[in-house]
């Protein structure tokens, strides 16, 4: 027998989210979205609980989680950094901005710093092409970001935490 353990409150939260959607397998994406919004990420245990509630194989849940880049199985940092790599941002140098974040934080895209403060991702077009290149930290938007500003952005948020 395989035993999967999860804190009681997390199980209760997931059961509630699934019930809100009538435990409908067709609602899987919405349920995953809410679960990630509440718990921060979607580790195996969370996917197992959702699969059990919806009565679908966990392989299907995992298939959806790994298909959409929005879903993550690793916890995000306290300050999740997203660099837009949409066409407009890309042609205005988003790649070098991303590289600078990687160099300064010493992590790759998709990674989290060991202290859990920052995570780094790239995404496709936030719809603010006039501000390209765009960087998001949590909900905060930075436009026309330059190479030199990367360090400033990191420091700003690191100080907020301390």
């Amino acid at each position: 027998m395989t035993t999967i353990t999860l804190p009681k409150c997390a199980i209760e939260t997931l059961v509630k989210i699934c019930a809100k959607h009538d435990n409908q397998p067709g609602e899987l994406i919405n349920i995953l979205h809410e679960a990630q919004g509440t718990l921060g990420y979607l580790p195996r245990e969370v996917q197992e609980v959702i699969a059990r509630q919806l009565r679908v194989p966990v392989s299907r849940v995992y298939g959806v989680v790994t298909f959409y880049s929005f879903f993550t199985m690793t916890p995000k940092g306290k300050h999740p950094i997203s660099v837009c790599m949409g066409t407009a941002c890309y042609v205005r140098g988003a790649e070098t901005i991303l590289d600078e974040f990687k160099r300064r934080l010493e992590i790759n895209a998709g990674g989290v710093t060991p202290d859990g403060q920052f995570s780094l991702d790239s995404l496709r077009c936030v719809g603010a092409c006039g501000l390209a290149p765009v960087v998001l930290v949590g909900e905060k938007v930075y436009g026309r970001v330059t190479h030199a500003e990367v360090e400033k952005i990191i420091t700003e948020h690191a100080e907020k935490s301390s």
Binding site: R44, Q47, V56, P57, V58, S59, R60, V61, Y62, G63, T66, F67, Y68, S69
Partner: peptide, 18 residues
């Protein structure tokens, strides 16, 4: 339900969960 399509693009494959 042991097998499902996972990942996307060139990385996609048919695999058990996780």
């Amino acid at each position: 339900g042991a097998l499902a399509a996972i990942n996307r693009g060139f990385d996609s494959t048919i695999s058990p969960a996780f």
